[in-house]
């Protein structure tokens, strides 16, 4: 029995929901970043699944978009972690509940 597109979409939805859970329910900034990365990985899985289950295209559009999306996710992670370090240096904490003022 071969899997249908539905199976992959449900896996992707579950991964996205777990990422949302991590981003919403944790108080540690690094956990929130991990959740966002998980949601991005779920989106990539959707791109690849839709590409694989649709008629062939030349060039392989889904693959290209997934590659670009991975590159952008890497850039986002680098800037996000730099922000975490900068905030930690200032506030001595990375708990987002304690970061409640804009004034430096």
């Amino acid at each position: 029995m071969t899997p249908t597109l539905q199976l992959f979409l449900i896996i992707s939805a579950a991964l996205f929901s777990i990422g949302l859970l991590a981003a919403l329910s944790r108080r540690h900034a690094i956990f929130i970043l991990i959740g966002i990365e998980m949601m991005l990985a779920a989106a990539n899985l959707n791109f690849i699944a839709f590409w694989r289950f649709s008629p062939q295209s030349q060039p392989p559009t889904g693959v290209m978009i997934a590659i670009f999306s991975i590159a952008i996710a890497a850039a986002e992670a680098a800037v996000g972690l730099a922000l975490v370090i900068a905030v930690y240096r200032h506030y001595r904490t990375t708990n987002v509940d304690h970061l409640n003022q804009l004034k430096g």
Partner: peptide
């Protein structure tokens, strides 16, 4: 899913 290159890129980058 047959996207070996993207899988490898994912492992390397992530």
């Amino acid at each position: 899913l047959g996207a070996e290159f993207v899988g490898l890129v994912l492992v390397f980058v992530y």
